[in-house]
Simulated assay, not measured.
Amino acid sequence: MGSGTRVAVAGLGGLGHLAIKLAVALGAETSVISRSKDKAADASRLGAHDLIISTDATHMAAARDRFDVVIDTISAPHDLEPYLRLVAMDGTLSHLGHLGPVTVQTTDLLVGRKKLSSAGSGGRPATEAMLEFCAAHDITADVEVLPSGQVNKALDRLARNDVHYRFVLDMSDLS
C-alpha cells in the first residue's frame, strides 16, 4: 500500500479507524465503507477521501472494481460478495474483522483475478516496525477511557453498540 493505491476500509470501528489512519499515512487514496452516512464526519476527520454507503445499491454499483485493496474490519458475520465486487482486477479483499466461518463463491474470486487474504500477528519484528511507523506518523487508537468502577456501564454500552472505537478501563481507582 502506498501512493497511488486505492484502499477502502469496510467498518469504521475499533479496528477500522486504525486501518484508515494507516492507509492514509502510507499515502493511499482511502475510502470508508459504512452502512450509513452517519460516519461521514468521522471518516473525513480520519483522512478518508470518500464514504461509500453499503446499504445504497447505487453507491455500491458506482464503486464496483474500484479498489486495489478492501480491508474488511466488520466484526459480525456478513456476506463477502458485495465487498469482492469493489475489488479491482488483481486486487485483494483482506478479511480481518470476523473470526468465524465465511462462504465465498469461487467465481467471485476468479472473475477479475481477485485474492482473499487475512492476517494474524506479524510477529515481533513486524509489530515493532508497525509501532515505529505509528510513532513517526503520530498514529494512535481513539479510545474512550472509563474508570474501572464503570465496567458494568461499559459492558451495557458495548451490548448496545454504543462505543466510539474502543473502551479502556482506567484501573487507578482500584486499591
Rank of each mutant, 00 (worst) to 15 (best):
M1I: 13
G4L: 11
V7D: 15
V7S: 13
A8K: 04
A8Y: 12
A8E: 13
V9H: 13
L12E: 11
G13E: 11
L15S: 01
H17E: 07
K21G: 04
K21T: 05
L22K: 01
T30Y: 12
I33S: 09
I33K: 06
I33V: 15
S36Q: 02
K37C: 06
A40P: 06
A40V: 07
D42A: 11
D42P: 08
S44R: 14
S44F: 10
R45A: 14
R45I: 04
L46S: 09
G47W: 07
D50V: 04
D50F: 06
D50C: 07
L51N: 15
L51Y: 14
I52L: 15
I53R: 05
I53S: 06
S54C: 03
T55W: 00
A57M: 11
A57P: 09
A61S: 03
A61M: 01
A62E: 08
A63C: 02
D65F: 01
D65S: 08
F67G: 07
V69T: 14
V69M: 14
D72I: 00
T73Y: 02
I74L: 05
P77E: 10
P77S: 07
D79G: 00
D79W: 00
L80E: 13
E81C: 08
E81N: 10
Y83A: 10
R85S: 12
A88G: 11
A88R: 08
M89A: 10
G91I: 09
G91N: 13
T92P: 13
T92Y: 09
L93K: 01
H95P: 09
H95D: 14
L96N: 14
L96I: 15
H98G: 04
G100S: 05
G100K: 03
T103E: 15
T103K: 13
V104P: 14
Q105P: 06
T106K: 13
D108Y: 02
L109M: 06
V111I: 15
G112R: 06
K115F: 14
L116W: 04
L116Y: 04
S117R: 11
G120H: 10
R124Q: 10
R124P: 08
R124A: 12
P125N: 07
P125F: 04
M130R: 00
L131F: 03
E132Y: 01
A135K: 05
T140G: 08
A141T: 12
D142R: 13
V143W: 05
V143F: 03
P147H: 03
G149P: 06
Q150P: 03
Q150I: 07
N152Q: 15
K153R: 14
L155H: 09
D156S: 14
D156T: 11
R157A: 14
R157C: 09
L158H: 00
V163T: 08
V163F: 04
Y165C: 13
Y165W: 10
R166K: 08
F167T: 02
L169D: 07
L169H: 08
D170I: 08
S172G: 07
D173Q: 05
S175F: 02
